[in-house]
Design a protein around this nucleic acid. Sequence first.
RNA 1: GCGAUCGUAGCUCAGUUGGUUAGAGCGCCGGUUUGUGGUACCGGAGGUCGUGGGUUCAAGACCCAUCGAUCGCCCCA
Length: 420
Amino acid sequence: MSKSDGKSARIATPQAIRGTQDIFGAEAEAFAFVVETFERVRKLYRFRPAQMPVFEKTAVFSRSLGETTDVVSKEMYSFDDRGGESLTLRPEFTAGIARAYLTNGWQQYAPVKIATHGPLFRYERPQKGRYRQFHQLDAEIIGAGEPLADVELLCMADQLLGELGIKDGVTLMLNTLGDGASREAWRAALIEYFEAHRPDLSEDSQERLRKNPLRILDSKDSRDHAFLGEAPRIDDFLSGEAQDFFGAVTGGLDAAGVAWTRAPALVRGLDYYRHTAFEFVTDRLGAQGTVLGGGRYDGLIETLGGAPTPAVGWAAGIERLAMLVGGEVARDPLQVVIAVEDDDSIGVAQRGLSALRRADLSSELVASGSPRKRFDKALKMQPRLVISASDQSLARRLLVGGNDDPTLVDRVESALMDVE
RNA sequence: GCGAUCGUAGCUCAGUUGGUUAGAGCGCCGGUUUGUGGUACCGGAGGUCGUGGGUUCAAGACCCAUCGAUCGCCCCA
């Protein structure tokens, strides 16, 4: 076969799907750090681990999120399976957890604190910190109607951000949407108010007026800003109970030493939210400012056919948290490298490598390339200790670094005791 | 779904108003040197210039389309 034939037979490498990511290197270290930190904090707050399927019957999401929301109407990955049933890759955690709570009888554990994390899917235009397959941390308390639950969740979120070392520049924006009656009265007043100014609103907000009037409040269009100051405020529609509830939440946060800022225009995109709504926001991620968000969703379980059940929860984008953590995450240090400086010593090197790893010492072997360059190659890997394998022994050792853990040498010696 | 910017070795980038065989640094591989806190020198491999059309005697460069990335809008974590 000629050379040109070989070229024409070349196989094209399939591309990754738009909006998906291959995470490696520093990004992967940061990602893992976020998940590990979440797991640790999760245990401190005694949230129970749970795993839900990545796909559900489409109704799980369409019913709970509302048919008209953008998420349901144009952002879901839905498909028919071989049996003709419409399934959907989960665009969020909450609906699936609520479904699992009902179908598995988790009521018996109520109030139950659940934490999970994993991939979510939304068909959106990708940009910084926003992907079609993205990953979230999630914490929920189901079956608890007390403001104490809201406070616990917020404390947990605050501590998580603290332990990730990213609290600088991140603020907790807090609001209440009131109970169902408060929320509806406020919503009606907002519609009436904005309807009167309809012709002067931006095109987007005219559309919002029809689909999601609360969202006009955080419009970025300057044409809308003139009307926001005079707009009806939720505080004027709160029932006594709703006021007390919010007061208990803010009081609890103050007692716990969690800083917060009242954000009267903060609303939730999804209809099932009541009472507490919150977002931890930053100005360091461009348009994707929300780093963690959630609230109380007392109405959700009913929309899935369950008994009225109070619940609160939050979710946080792992990619966004990882970006804030940035390059501050170091890889786990490499403890030992064995440089095989002549090929006759490969056997003793392999025996030594196994012994080191069984002794819980992270180790690598350098046995390829020019033998004379292997020691330099080992040094370049920045281990704590380099062992030279030559003349069929592991005799020569070099500690790398000034402030070494003296026990490392002892551990290596005892691990290698039977090798030579 | 809308608008804008950008796609050249593994990575970061250069490539003049279109003009021979597309370059550099880093990284990788090999040789020599050094003989151990990351040496120095020499050599080598590696590119359908995102992809497909078009204009032209001639396209990495210009035009169109497409795919992807980035930054906004929308939406949302």
